[in-house]
Simulated scan of single mutants.
Amino acid sequence: MSVRPDAHILTARPFAHRGLHGPGISENGMAAFDAAIAAGHGIECDVRASRDGVAFTFHDADLQRMTGQPGRIAAISAAALDQMRLPDGGAIPRLSALLARCEGRVPMLVEIKAPGRRVAALCGAVARDLADWPDAPIAIMSFNPHVLSCFARQRKRQLRGLVVTQQNKGAVRGRIERALALWLGRPDFLACDIRDLPSPFAAHARRRGLPVLSWTVRSPADHARAARHTDQIIYEDGA
């Protein structure tokens, strides 16, 4: 990635939330990612790390819902995770395997699931995988501004997005949190909760030139709202 890309490259196609999953196709599984590629859409995926620091595409901290196995993904080795199966029978993909499948041609949003301040290990695992695809249309994003700050230090040209929601927060608390997150994370784009739109915060960001994506778009009403107030959608099938 010799030149820092323009974040507006992320607005060309819709992104399938956790891949294009549905009946018989598990979220964040390779079949869901293949379906998104076949549809000509971008891919949004969640990433967590194994005990030994390998990045996997997986949403939950706990393995039970998607594998039927007890335990936290952070406590399991990569070799053991490779043997587990999602409901559709597929393996839990390593991020490196998904990147190889996309071959640098498919837009990707990699949401890093790292609460708190101790984010360096997971960010490092993701950064190592992304290093093999320096010119691919890929952005990292997170609710956690410390993730964005970490990437700003170790992978300066990587596009970075801040994921935000106002749900279950008071107006004052939300404003303070967003202001601090923007200051710390210095994002290139925002991914806003569709339930919060229209939003003065999102409108102000667009006026400043930051692209705004919306998640998770699931209905025709969501789709219409996103079309009025954002630059692109992160959707689930049915939208």
Rank of each mutant, 00 (worst) to 15 (best):
L213C: 11
H41Y: 14
G104L: 01
G124P: 04
S219P: 02
L10Y: 13
S96P: 05
G53V: 00
I233M: 15
I9N: 03
C45P: 03
I25P: 14
D88R: 04
A35K: 06
R94Y: 10
L213K: 10
E27V: 02
D52Y: 12
V3H: 07
L20R: 10
Q64P: 02
S219E: 01
A224D: 14
L190E: 03
P107D: 08
S50M: 13
F58Q: 02
H21A: 05
R157W: 05
D188H: 12
M1K: 05
R72L: 14
L190T: 04
D60Y: 03
I37F: 15
G89E: 06
R175P: 01
G170E: 00
F15I: 03
A203L: 15
L122K: 00
Q83I: 07
P5D: 04
D34A: 10
L98V: 15
G89F: 08
E177C: 02
V3F: 11
M141Y: 08
E44S: 07
W133Q: 05
D34V: 09
N144H: 00
R157E: 08
D237W: 11
R160D: 05
A224T: 06
R128A: 15
A227F: 07
I112A: 00
R173Y: 02
E236H: 09
N144L: 00
R51N: 10
T67W: 03
R101V: 15
L159F: 11
M66W: 04
S214L: 07
S199Q: 13
R85M: 08
G22D: 13
A227K: 07
N168L: 05
A205V: 03
I37D: 08
A136P: 03
I194S: 04
S199P: 06
I140A: 00
R72C: 11
P200D: 15
Q166L: 12
H8Y: 14
G185A: 04
T11S: 12
R72P: 05
C192L: 03
I73M: 08
P107Q: 12
I76P: 14
F56P: 13
P115H: 02
S214A: 14
V126M: 04
D222Y: 02
P5K: 04
L210H: 06
F151E: 01
L180T: 09
Q83L: 12
I92H: 10
A100L: 10
A61M: 06
T216C: 13
S2A: 15
A97R: 07
F58V: 01
A32W: 11
P14F: 12
R13C: 11
D188P: 03
D237S: 10
G116D: 02
P5V: 04
L197Q: 13
L190H: 03
V106F: 06
P14S: 10
V119D: 00
A139R: 01
A74T: 15
I138N: 01
P200T: 13
G161T: 07
W183K: 15
A61E: 12
S142A: 08
T230Y: 07
H21K: 09
Q158H: 04
R4I: 13
G104I: 01
S219T: 08
L10H: 11
R118W: 00
G104M: 02
L197T: 14
S2V: 14
V106M: 05
M30H: 05
A7F: 10
E44I: 03
S96T: 14
D52L: 12
H204V: 01
H223R: 06
Q158K: 05
I140G: 00
T216G: 13
Q166D: 08
D60M: 05
A239L: 06
A191R: 02
G22N: 13
I138K: 00
